[in-house]
């Protein structure tokens, strides 16, 4: 099973619509949405979900108000500002707590600070027209996105191998931080979707650096390429200079957001758009086969 991960650095360049289109064009694939902060792939890949499964990660501290003497040792030791004074006692501000355990270590009164497992999010498996989708929702204000991404990838890999799927398609999170690291490791090809703007170009270059850091092969797709042809040319030049292939260019098509609004794929947009996406998938799948 070949693993293809679609990233963009900058958000909103079209990762999710492209991954959903790839899933349709691949005919058989397991897809995984690793943008667990704001997971959108399920909106474009309809099907039947399995029941929701809980994802626990880390712990959260709790202070027993009956036992707390108000000494403040926990507040002084907490590096995350998660201990707050309430009257003469202290309380954990759960959103700020990272579950490190230091407060429990320094509290002089035994059994005053306890730790509970933290429900970080939920995840599901969906049977779609062309295969499977593993998707999740990180809880609001949670901090375990990298761990949840790693968990989803393991599940998707197991499911995909078992069903003998030819492709694992990863819809990546924006940025270059921890969830991206969890999503990029070990993939066969990184596809960077960019758009012709100064931000798109800037963030693409950081993504190229990141792929190099993780020693993963990377290719580029320029979405809405005709919106600013000069910038598209500059991006192509940057890619050429770094030996990074540009595998596709997709034109701007105002039909696309309207189709998305109906839960439809950009493959139903203008013929030129659909053709560009088909060509892009062909190039991406061939590049993956070449390894």
């Amino acid at each position: 099973m070949k693993q293809i991960a679609v990233f963009s650095g900058k958000g909103g360049t079209g990762k999710t619509s492209l991954v959903a289109s790839f899933a349709a064009l691949a005919r058989r694939a397991v897809a995984v949405d690793t943008d667990v902060d704001a997971a959108n792939l399920a909106l474009l890949l309809p099907g039947e979900d399995t029941s929701e499964k809980a994802f626990y990660s880390g712990r959260r501290a709790r202070i027993d108000p009956e036992r707390c003497t108000g000494c403040g040792a926990c507040r002084d030791a907490c590096r995350f500002g998660a201990v707050r004074a309430v009257g003469t006692r202290f309380e954990i501000h759960t959103i700020s707590c990272e579950g490190c355990g230091v407060c429990g270590l320094v509290c002089p009164v035994p059994d005053t600070i306890t730790f509970e497992d933290n429900l970080a999010g939920t995840w599901r498996i969906r049977h779609t027209a062309t295969g499977l989708l593993v998707h999740a929702q990180l809880g609001i204000a949670q901090d375990s996105s990298g761990k949840l991404v790693a968990h989803l990838r393991r599940e998707a890999e197991t499911l995909g191998e078992r069903a003998q799927m030819p492709y694992l398609l990863i819809d990546g999170p924006p940025g270059i931080g921890c969830p991206v690291h969890a999503a990029i490791g070990g993939v066969d090809l990184v596809v960077a979707v960019t758009e012709p703007s100064v931000s798109g170009e800037h963030d693409l270059i950081r993504l190229l650096d990141l792929a190099e850091h993780f020693r993963r092969p990377i290719s580029v797709v320029i979405n809405k390429a005709d919106l600013a042809p000069k910038v598209s040319t500059r991006i192509r030049r940057v890619c050429h200079g770094r030996g990074v292939p540009v595998l596709g260019e997709i034109p701007f098509d105002p039909l696309v957001p309207r189709l998305l609004a109906q839960g439809r794929l950009p493959l139903d947009a203008r013929p030129a758009t659909a053709e560009a996406i088909r060509e892009t998938w062909k190039a991406v799948s061939e590049a993956t086969e070449r390894g």
């Binding site: 902060d37 990180l138 901090d143 924006p174």
Partner: peptide, 8 residues
């Protein structure tokens, strides 16, 4: 973007 720790 997002709703997790960097946004908080």
């Amino acid at each position: 973007p997002g709703t997790s720790c960097p946004v908080l």
